[in-house]
Design a protein around this nucleic acid. Sequence first.
DNA 1: GTGAACACTATTTTT
DNA 2: TAGTGTTCAC
Length: 773
Amino acid sequence: MELLDTLNKEQRDAVTHIDGPLLILAGAGSGKTRVITYRIAYMVQEKNISPKEILAITFTNKAAGEMRERLEGLVGYRSKYMACGTFHSIFARILRKHLDPNFAIIDSDDQEKLVKQAMKDVNAPTDKIKPSMAKSMISNAKNHMVEPNQFCMSFGRDFISQHVEKIYARYNEILKANNAMDFDDILVNTVKLFEQRHDVLEFYQEQYKYIMVDEYQDTNMPQYRAVMLLASRYRNICVVGDDDQSIYAFRGANVQLILDFEKDFPDCCVVKLEENYRSTGNILKAANSIIANNSHRTSKALRTSGGDGDKIILMNADSGIGEARYVVDTINMLVKKGKCKYSDIAILYRVNAMSRNIDKALHNSGIPFRVYGGMRFFDRKEIKDVLAYLRLINDDGDNLAFERIINVPRRGIGDTTLEKIRLIGTQEGMSLFEVARNCDMYPDLSRSASKLAEFTELILRMREMLLSDTMNFAEFVDYVENESGIIEECIEERTKKGEIVDRVENLKELLSEAADFEKAHRTEAPEETSSEEGGDAAADLFDIGSADTTDGILKLYLDNAALYTEGDNFDDNDDFVRLMTVHSAKGLEFKAVFLIGVEEGIFPGYRSIASEADLEEERRLMYVAVTRAKRYLFIVVAQQRMLYGQTQCNKPSRFVSEIDKDLLYAMGLSRAQPAASQIDASRMSANTAISETLADKYKKSSVFRANAAKKENKVGLRADQIKKGMKVVHDRFGEGVVLSVEPTGGDALVSVDFDGMRKNLLANSAGLKPLGL
DNA sequence: GTGAACACTATTTTT
DNA sequence: TAGTGTTCAC
């Protein structure tokens, strides 16, 4: 096979190892994507494996799309038969097929709203617990597959947990009442489905005899369990990842899972891809020396056969303004000398707020640029409002949609009326829309009856228009935008406030999205639906189907809208400089990278310096940042900068001092000693008071105390120290015997018998102590 | 029910 | 700084 000739030995090993478990540790820039796609091509072409038996799982839609595209180039039409998609999209389709075809998927924004609602319902102390905090605790519980009634048992019985337990239970009730799932539910419910329905699990085990998971270091518990279940029959599982690039622990990703893969499959084959084809020697050495400071990782080191290249430039700017000026000047120089195009250049930062100065400076200089990240397209208010209209038109039982738009645009229906409608709805077992539709029947609603009637008639009129099938999908969305008054409101807002973000533009963009979607999924001739029994399962899981009516297109669109978060196109070829956070730069590469704000308190962030684990994640983030650069790397620190409306004065990041001095060329202020704190003492002490305010605040916060308390509690046994049959003591439950230990990546679910009472506990947080101590 | 004035707070965010 | 949430007078 000639494909193999272009690969190095390790890559070839990975590509040709098809049967049995395989772990590919793919360092940054080691040709990972090529290995994955070639491997699939090898399976299909050389091993005659049917593409229908291959399941490839990624984390983003973009990655899935790219994989499919590259595969099409390699194996042609056969790539179409392969199931390739994100965890969420694949699992959602499985759930729709076997559990409920109609559940709604809510995004994290709606999730927070429902948590807020739940907090109200259970009278949670809103001054002590913030909705966002409750939300992340609930999400964390789901990520550990802990049910509401096990919450305190698993995470402790402190004040906050006791309330969150109730909030969690109520939140799940609300979801159920709305037939909705959040992102975590999609994963958890899939695991449950596999565990409870053996026939279903068996079906998919047989269907997908070959499984691949990309970015395995980013998997969380439910994802891991689902994959293990699927792979347990044929054991042809290949996971690809890099523990050094795990930067999503804060979202539930568990590095331990990739570190433990060899324990899960003792007979697995491990291939390390350490040859880097991306960066110069100096950049790689810097990356290696930074990441070497992490203790919790598999040992590997990137190497290159290329030359050292230029030194890394460390610029010490006087201020945030100076930093921006330096970046602008250097970009101009690079482009003028013909070393780079604008599109070769990226400016990376730890926090979005850091883009401000640079944004301004680039704007004034006339350098073309684009800022990525921040508010995503489908998260924008006006877009979500239009989608809510579409949802309500499609299904008037969608209470969440109703609540969102009942007063958008303003039509004089406020909280009081809505509360009354809710009450009647619960009493009569009717949807909010139905109550509004029949508002004449309820004296409580008499005051706003005319307004409610107007609204429900608007929705019904729109539905009639939809069903008449006289408009194509984009036309219909346009009609809804206009008829609802959303466009009008946005135009008014724009003229009134001169808004920076152009909402009207976004609404237009939605129309072109709609048109694209329709083009891809409209069939002219009426056809039988693809979800018929015995349909092609492989195709089912990635092909969202098609329809021949506008109504049908709308349904497909809504089914997928929550999981489809494209809108920002990273891969357009226009010539501009890219600005983004280090997180969003993962997986990308640039000829020249400016890494700005590499200062203590920012990178690593002030909230990360308290714990070793958080600090290691920051360091991995730094590693990711450095390895984005192919040829030129500029690290910029400022002695003083304005952030969050306050002037702060930070020391250069410890990560800078972890780079061998020989690799750096320091310039700007205090060029002699780059990483050390060269700032004169008086100025330092005068300014630290200011710069430490956020950090101080954080140290006083309940979150910090909770974290600290948790660390204190670690006096108990760790997951790996607990064994079946062991006698243990629990603070509340007393003495018990360990019945079983189920490892769950870094932690373990331990079942303990406390004198006849059986409890499931999370090992690391339960604080179990060996008996006799 | 609305909107203006005020208070608060601020990593990262694949789905 | 800036964006969002809350409060209160109309």
